[in-house]
Every structure is written in C-alpha cells, then in structure tokens.
C-alpha cells in the first residue's frame, strides 16, 4: 500500500515544493500571482521573477537532488552497501576537481560544455576506479577508505589550484563551486547538463532490475542469470554521468545520495531496484526544500546549499553508519 503510493506521493510533494519555491523568497509573491506568472498571464516583473529566477533555480535544485539520489541508490545496490554514495566515495570531489580545472584554465568561460564535460570526466574516473577496486575487495571499509583517499587527493589538488588562482575572480568562482549552490542558475545552465543527466538516468533506470539480483551476492546473482559485467558498466557510467552533471550544475553537494535512498529503502521492502525512482524523487524534493530554507533564512549573506546539505547530511551519515547491521565490515 505504502509502496504503491510512494512514487505518486513524492511526485506531488515535489511539484508542491517547486511551486512553493516560486512563492517564497526575499519578496514573497502571493499564490494567484505565481499561478498567473506560471501560466504566462502576469505582469512583466512577476514573469521575470518566476521564470528567470525562482523556477530555474528550483528546478536545478530538484535535478541535482534527483541525480544524486538516483546515483546514490544504484551505487548502494551495486556495492551492496548503504554507505556508498557519490560524496562518500569521492566521486563528487573528483567531479569538483574536474570543474575547478575547467574554471582555472578558463575553459568554462569560453565553452559552455567545458564545465560539465570536465566534471563528468572526473566523476567517471572516480566511479570506474571504485568499481574496479570493488572487484578485488568485499570490504566496505576498504571502499570507503579509498573514497576518503580520493576525496582528500581531489581536495588537495583543488587547494593547489586555488593557491595558484590567476585572479581573485577565478578564486571566488572556484570556491563557489566547492561549496555547492544553485543560486542564479538559469534554464540555459540546465539545458547544458540535461542531456548527460538524461542519458545517465536512462542507463541507471534500465539496469535497475539487475541490482535486485545482486542482493543475493555476486556469485548467486550470476547464477540466476545476471550479466554482471554489463550491469557494472551501466552503473559506473550512469552514476558517473549523473554525479558529474550534478556537480557541473551546482558544485559539490554531499549526503543527499545517502540520505534519500536510506529513507525510502524500508518503504520498498529493501529492494535496490524499486528504491531508485523514489530515491531520485526524494533527493530532488529534499534539495528544493533545503534551497527554500537557504533563501528565506534571514542571514546577511545567503548560505550555500552544499553547506546546509552537509550540516544536515553528515550527522545522518554517522547515524546510518552506527545503525548498520554488522558482519561484512
């Protein structure tokens, strides 16, 4: 019952949150005016606020959260481990490094696709590396330590680039990416990364059935007829595309990929395949809400979405790690 209602509920809640994101802000707009603006029947000023500022920002937040939620859910299915997530495994950090490299050398300013391609390359390298290490070890601890190593390495490389930043503007740009935010994003920004997100999403969604089989363990999964090499490739490429595109759009935003799948898993009988879609929807919903909170908080400087996500997500990560059923550590 809950299972059947889950996706429709999350969809409706997400749409409501997107609508709320258009209502709320430094100058709250009344319900009728937002509705009129969405239908294209409002004054020029309202149209501008809704279509150029609030809606693209909210949809970008949703896309980023959905991408991270989905890639978290499939990585957890593939590695058979509730702690796997783009952020924890160092995938987001490597994608950020790619993005920062593109900013540092000025590629990002001269070609719109430079940033997403650089971020996605970083993410794919990291997911490929993690998945190939996972072939040799069943130890969750090893994988997470390797993620920590990847994150630290990418962090150090980024610090190096910050150190050598040619101008203060580049420096500010790079720091903004590392903190993570969807402020001032336009539909143009979204269209640039959308093809990568779409491709990644299709790859993950079409391979999700294999994740159910992996529940049984790799050998038994092969025994029931899973083509594990194909699954691994699809997940690595799909999760890399999604995490890389998310970073290209919003910078590094951690822990959504771990919290969203964790919350939906008990509602879908712990089936990794059935958790992909609701994890994506919930990830999107969480980030839209978090972004509304960031915007309406009366702070002098607007908080960065990535900072808020980490402030909430990191304790959640620790809590999940503590509650994890022991055994395969």
């Amino acid at each position: 019952m809950i299972e059947r209602a889950l996706n429709p509920f999350l969809l409706v809640a997400s749409l409501a949150a997107l609508f709320a994101a258009c209502l709320l802000g430094s100058t709250p707009l009344p319900f009728e005016r937002v509705l009129a603006a969405l239908l294209g029947q409002a004054s020029g000023g309202d149209q501008l606020v809704v279509w150029q500022i609030r809606l693209p920002r909210a949809i970008c937040g949703f896309a980023v959260g959905a991408a991270l939620g989905a890639s978290g859910a499939v990585l957890q299915g593939l590695l058979r481990n509730p702690l796997a997530e783009p952020g924890v495994l160092g995938v987001s950090a490597c994608a950020s490094l790619g993005a920062v490299v593109a900013l540092y050398y000025g590629f990002a300013a001269s070609w719109a696709y430079a940033m997403p391609l650089a971020a996605i390359s970083g993410a794919l390298l990291a997911t490929g590396f993690i998945a190939s290490v996972a072939l040799y070890t069943q130890s969750v601890v090893t994988l997470i330590l390797i993620g920590v190593g990847l994150s630290s390495f990418a962090g150090a490389a980024m610090s190096l680039l910050l150190n050598f930043a040619p101008t203060p503007f580049t420096l500010a740009d790079m720091i903004n990416w590392m903190l993570g935010s969807v402020a001032n994003r336009s539909f143009t920004d979204l269209w640039v990364v959308a093809p990568f997100m779409l491709l990644g999403g299709v790859l993950l969604f079409s391979s999700r059935r294999g994740l159910s089989a992996l529940t049984l363990g790799e050998e038994a999964a092969i025994g029931v007829g899973l083509n594990i090499k194909r699954l691994r490739l699809a997940v690595v490429v799909g999760a890399g595309l999604l995490a890389g595109a998310a970073v290209a759009l919003a910078g590094a935003i951690g822990f959504v990929g771990i919290v969203a799948p964790h919350l939906v898993r008990p509602l879908v009988h712990h089936d990794p395949a059935r958790s992909v879609l609701p994890a994506a929807l919930l990830g999107g919903l969480l980030l839209v809400i978090a972004d509304i909170v960031v915007r309406v908080l009366p702070t002098t400087t607007e908080l960065k979405l990535g900072v808020v996500a980490a402030l909430i997500g990191a304790p959640a990560f620790a809590w999940i790690a503590l509650r994890r059923r022991g055994g395969d550590g």
Binding site: R80, N81, S212, L214, T215, L216, G217, E219, A220, I222, G223, V224, R265, H269, H270, D271, P272, R325, D328
Partner: peptide
C-alpha cells in the same frame, strides 16, 4: 539453478522477494 557456498544477503529483503 545454482546455490553457491556463501550466500550473503545485502539487504533485509522479504522472503517472498
């Protein structure tokens, strides 16, 4: 059909599933 020696279940799934 194949029953391997070690059969580690990753998640607390339902028996039916």
């Amino acid at each position: 059909a194949y029953l391997p020696q070690t059969r580690p279940l990753a998640w607390p799934n339902r028996v039916r599933d």
